[in-house]
Nucleic acid binder design. Structure first.
Lengths: 170, 170
DNA sequence: GGCGCTTCGCTAACATGTTAGCCATATAAC
DNA sequence: GTTATATGGCTAACATGTTAGCGAAGCGCC
């Protein structure tokens, strides 16, 4: 369920396990409870992530937003442009370094965050109860191990020579 | 690291915890080791997910692919069209029910999967060693609790009346 | 058989993800 | 100072995500 197609059909499952896929499902399992709140205010997920990040640091540079919010630079360019048009953020070039840019919230955006933020927290509490606080705690711990862990570079297997799969070899 | 911007700067972290965000990072942390393999064969992540799913079931209907691969119907339409053009899959209407469609792999795709699949498995083993088999095991267990768990419907908090945030209220 | 209702895949419109590469600016080397 | 190199944000081109809604096909009911 919570599949965004709406229908709740007990579907076929794959035999093999696939961690990235599991992460994707888990993410959706949670996000589907927040999405309605965010879209209610006319925002997208990414826009909300960005506002929340700026809310913590007062101001951020695009590079930093990229890393904090897990958004690629080319995507961010578009998102920020739209947010600028919506009157949510401002972009100003730095004096010292003409390459860099500072992104800030407008008063309008601050009011929006002040209204939206508490609702997210409220919904979060509901979810925490439904999942069980122990599971949530467990999740944080495991995820930290995955992300924050200091492990050496993971080797990449060597690939075979590239074939021309596009060619119609019948 | 493994941020796709390439640069490894010890970035600022957010004070608040955000589970969906953590899932996104964790997913990327793994996927960045598989992506090179998949793109090496001229496929996208989604295309590979779909081929792998069909490989398990011989044939699938679009609805099923949507649910198994976590792809929304409108996205799938495009992906399948492209895969059809590339000669990877075929789409045939069902006789009994003219609404439904059957998606199958072409021989070309089967050869591709036969080459690509083992490489994924190989890389997976490398990752499992790097992360530690215990952590991987732990991950599967926790994720199953999140996804497969049978819990009642999670209530949605009530939203305030919609304001006109777009309007320039200065 | 006609009627309302549902299901299925689809289109349309927009936002974002992904890769490659450009351009101006800053920095280091000479 | 001039050159080479690196950095930061950007554009371009394509693939996918997301929401709303359409049209044809099946289904149940009368």
């Amino acid at each position: 369920m919570c599949i965004r197609t709406g229908i709740v059909t007990m579907s076929r499952k794959l035999a093999y396990r696939n961690l990235p896929q599991l992460f994707l499902r888990a993410r959706e399992e949670l996000l589907c409870h927040f999405r309605p709140i965010i879209t209610h205010f006319g925002l997208t997920e990414q826009q909300w992530r960005i506002l929340r990040a700026i809310g913590e640091y007062e101001q951020l540079e695009p590079r930093e937003i990229c890393e904090i919010c897990q958004i690629l630079s080319p995507s961010l360019t578009g998102v920020l442009s739209r947010m600028e048009d919506m009157g949510l953020v401002t972009r100003t070039r730095m004096e010292e370094d003409q390459r860099r840019v500072i992104v800030r919230m407008t008063p309008k955006a601050e009011k929006l965050v002040a209204e939206l933020g508490p609702l997210i927290v409220e919904q979060y509490k509901v979810i925490e109860q439904a999942f069980g606080p122990e599971l949530i705690q467990e999740l944080y711990e495991v995820m930290d191990k995955v992300i924050a862990a200091e492990r050496g570079p993971i080797p990449q297997i060597k690939l075979p020579p590239r074939k021309n799969w596009l060619a119609d070899e019948s």
